[in-house]
Amino acid sequence: MELPPKVKNILLLDSEGKRIAAKYYSDDWPTNATKEAFEKSVFTKTQKTNARAEVEVTAMENNIIVYKVAQDLHFFVTGGEEENELVLESVLQGLFDAVNLLLRGNVDKREALDNLDLIFLCFDEIIDGGIVLETDANVIAEKAGINSSDPNAPLSEQTISQALATAREHFKRSLMN
């Protein structure tokens, strides 16, 4: 049994169910055809529900799928049926909020396609090979949205807090000795 929570895929579909970006971390869907079939059935199943205010959830083919819709964008996160729904929800919420930050509040298809690189980076920062890497939207957005002109700028804040943390650590150690 896989004990750490596992995410099977992350999907970003448009209002017709077409794939904008998708990342699969499981062998359950080996070919592009099976992936598309899965996306289609997920979309048809969730299309009629209103997942704009709250994250919604459904079960399908031994999977738990949490999803959220904003404008013409549909976000999905899939996990196995034994998975903790709230873990999946936190991943979805992290993804959604990070995308919202990166697209400066204009969460729609046009903006997403224009900034597809950021979306890909976002996926990459949330999940690594099915394992949750980070769920804090601010951290994700910061890591994905690196400004090309100024390499260290977005990380500077973090480095300062880091430096503080290390200093604290050192201080504590010296006290304990």
Partner: peptide, 21 residues
């Protein structure tokens, strides 16, 4: 040209993501 190169990589990623092999 970093800008240009980033754009091309995004296109490549887009193709792969759409199931192109």
């Amino acid at each position: 040209d970093p800008r240009k190169c980033s754009q091309v990589i995004t296109k490549l990623l887009y193709l792969l993501n759409q199931g192109e092999s």
